[in-house]
Design a protein around this nucleic acid. Sequence first.
DNA 1: ATCCCATTGGTGATGTGTCAACTAATGAGC
DNA 2: GCTCATTAGTTGACACATCACCAATGGGAT
Lengths: 167, 167
Amino acid sequence: MAETRWLDEREQRAWRGLLAMHTQLTARMHRDLQADSGLSLADFDVLVQLTDQAEPSLRFGDLAEALQWEKSRLSHHLARMEKRGLVSRKPSKDDARGNIVSLTRLGRTAIEQAAPAHVEKVRHLVFDQLDENQVDTLAAITEAVLARLNAPRAASAERAGHDGTAA
Amino acid sequence: MAETRWLDEREQRAWRGLLAMHTQLTARMHRDLQADSGLSLADFDVLVQLTDQAEPSLRFGDLAEALQWEKSRLSHHLARMEKRGLVSRKPSKDDARGNIVSLTRLGRTAIEQAAPAHVEKVRHLVFDQLDENQVDTLAAITEAVLARLNAPRAASAERAGHDGTAA
DNA sequence: ATCCCATTGGTGATGTGTCAACTAATGAGC
DNA sequence: GCTCATTAGTTGACACATCACCAATGGGAT
């Protein structure tokens, strides 16, 4: 096994920066959102998905898929949101296993009231600090990394120490 | 109040990409690290800080500062790590309120065994996917956003809707 | 119709992170 | 050498995320 290739100076700068930025950015947005509207970032994401639909109700599974959340996570989270009256769940008629998740009036009010300030915050904190080239480069970076994360055979390629193209 | 400036296409691409990348990247690295070594990412960060010091022990507060963690968080986390034998805490002689946190033999072994694979994973998943310009741009982006996050008067500037330079 | 098993979603345990409230030791001012 | 605000660190309550497992339904193959 070859020696570890550590990160050089520039890579460390980018890596540490990325971690610090994400931590501080989400912490800040979470605190502000919570203070403004009583919603968490997770609540916000759920409510956005329900609002984006033509119908403000979705199959549980479709919602999980749209959010890219595990079902277990969504189940726990909806239980908390339901207790607070933001969403409601009722059994589906088509499939007695299925649940339909709907936005309540309270949930709709909450998201409509919270969204503008939240978007403005993203703009102020992030995009107002970047030029066009940086925005596009950021998008390209994320897409490259996501492509690698979702690449097939990634695990064995990592162990073998070369890229995924088979011999 | 002016109408909300929503994100345009390109900004959404970058923003969603950033969130998705971070979520998937940390999930992946956490799972792999856990499977390889039984450590969480948080454990790893704590152990790295203790290892990077000349002395493998630190004042509790200095450790919290180095990690940029709240004291409460660190206290809870060290309690769990201590239970697993990765670190030890003992009262400081200089200041009877203070605690000295030390790496145990088990903790040292764990980090030394885990670090190389972890670094390689960062390299494979991230830096091998990027060119030099992208790495530097990423660093610049994170620094710009972090500067804004830590800017004084940021909160009132956001409410007022202009930047922080006073009238 | 029956058997099987894949799918839908929920549950409990545990680890993690934040907030608010707390205890104990310190040290400045008198 | 007291008084008392400050500092160091802990604790408990709660929200959140993951894992492993479970219950019920659905939909085939026979």
